[in-house]
Simulated assay, not measured.
Amino acid sequence: MHDEPGPGLHNGEERGATFEDLAAFLQRPEPDGYPVQVVRECVCRSCGGRAFEVAVMADEAARRTCLACRETEFIADSEEYWDDDAEADYCCACLCGGEEFAAAVGFSLREDGDVRWVYVGLRCLACGALGLYEDWKINYGPSAFLLDRA
Results as ranks from 00 to 15, higher is better:
His2Ser: 14
Tyr34Lys: 15
Arg110Glu: 11
Ala150Trp: 02
Glu87Val: 09
Met57Glu: 15
Gly16Phe: 02
Val105Asp: 02
Gly98Ile: 14
Ala88Val: 08
Ala62Tyr: 01
Leu146Glu: 05
Tyr140Ser: 04
Ala51Arg: 06
Arg45Trp: 07
Ala129Met: 07
Val115Glu: 05
Asp148Met: 10
Glu87Cys: 08
Cys44Phe: 06
Gly97Val: 04
Asp21Ala: 11
Cys66Asp: 07
Gly128Phe: 05
Glu73Gly: 05
Ser108Lys: 00
Glu99Gly: 11
Val36Ala: 06
Glu20Ile: 08
Arg149Pro: 00
Glu73Cys: 01
Arg70Trp: 04
Asp84Leu: 11
Ala102Lys: 06
Ala23Glu: 07
Val118Met: 04
Ser46Lys: 11
His10Ala: 11
Glu100Lys: 10
Ala129Arg: 02
Tyr119Asn: 02
Trp117Lys: 09
Ala61Val: 04
Gly98Thr: 12
Gly141Arg: 15
Glu73Ala: 01
Ala88Met: 10
Arg50Met: 08
Gly33His: 08
Asp89Tyr: 07
Leu9Ala: 14
Pro5Val: 13
Ala103Val: 00
Val118Gly: 03
Glu41Thr: 10
Ser108His: 02
Leu22Glu: 02
Asp148Leu: 08
Phe52Ile: 14
Arg110Asp: 06
Asp21Met: 09
Gly121Ser: 05
Ser143Val: 07
Gly98Trp: 02
Trp82Asn: 08
Leu125Cys: 01
Glu14Arg: 05
Asp84Tyr: 15
Leu122Trp: 06
Cys91Tyr: 15
Ile138Glu: 06
Leu109Arg: 03
Ile138Phe: 04
Glu53Cys: 11
Val56Trp: 02
Phe19Pro: 03
Asp89Asn: 15
Ala144Met: 07
Arg149Thr: 10
Arg63Gln: 12
Tyr119Trp: 05
Gly8Arg: 15
Leu22Gly: 06
Gln27Leu: 09
Ala104Asp: 05
Arg28Leu: 04
Gly8Cys: 10
Arg50Asn: 00
Leu95Ile: 15
Trp82Pro: 10
Glu13Leu: 11
Asn11Lys: 13
Asp3Glu: 15
Asp135Trp: 09
Phe19Met: 07
Trp117Arg: 10
Leu125Thr: 13
